[in-house]
């Protein structure tokens, strides 16, 4: 899986309440959730997002609530992959289960600035900052994670298995 896009970079401890505030959880329609993604942290986020753009953040991305609406809203807002120094436990699992690619790559985070253009080869675990020319490595997706993400989430992946 390859991703290519402009980076939107944020700090540490980006919590699920700013990713999608609870006041918008009166729906579970992904497109509706996407409209309010990151709104309390960066009101201009949705407007500047281009489909395929990349989120980069420091430590503990997705801390807080277990709401699966958080990865759903990010994915539906058009984010192709999140690269962070670390992820909170529940968010990590929720992201994979909902088919949102995430990668832990501390050195890449340090070497990437807001607005940079980045290419990611998730199967090889290679992150290239096209703006600076620097290359970083990350853990490639294990095959089962790749399978879940390609199918769009755990439920779809499991349904595929059952049909087979």
């Amino acid at each position: 899986m390859k991703f290519h896009g402009t980076v939107h970079k944020y700090g540490r401890d980006i919590d699920t309440d700013v990713i999608i505030p609870a006041r918008y959880l009166n729906t579970s329609i992904p497109e509706e959730l996407a409209k309010h993604c990151m709104e309390d942290l960066d009101a201009g986020f949705v407007a500047k997002m281009q489909f395929g753009d990349i989120l980069v953040a420091e430590e503990n991305f997705g801390c807080g609530s277990s709401r699966e609406h958080a990865p759903i809203s990010i994915k539906s807002a058009g984010v192709s992959v999140i690269i962070a120094k670390s992820f909170a436990r529940i968010f990590y699992r929720n992201a994979i289960n909902t088919g949102l690619p995430i990668m832990e790559a501390p050195e890449a985070v340090d070497g990437i600035s807001d607005g940079d253009t980045v290419t990611v080869d998730a199967d090889a675990g290679i992150i290239v900052n096209e703006t600076t020319g620097e290359t970083y490595t990350a853990q490639p997706f294990p095959p089962f994670v790749k399978d879940i993400i390609e199918k769009g989430g755990l439920i779809e992946a499991v349904k595929g298995k059952v049909r087979e």
Partner: peptide, 22 residues
């Protein structure tokens, strides 16, 4: 399906929060 499910740890229950899919 709530992050504060860890509350019952005080009662010697291994309880933990998960997402809706899990």
């Amino acid at each position: 399906c709530d992050s504060h499910t860890c509350t019952y740890g005080a009662l010697n229950v291994f309880s933990t929060g998960v997402g809706s899919t899990d």
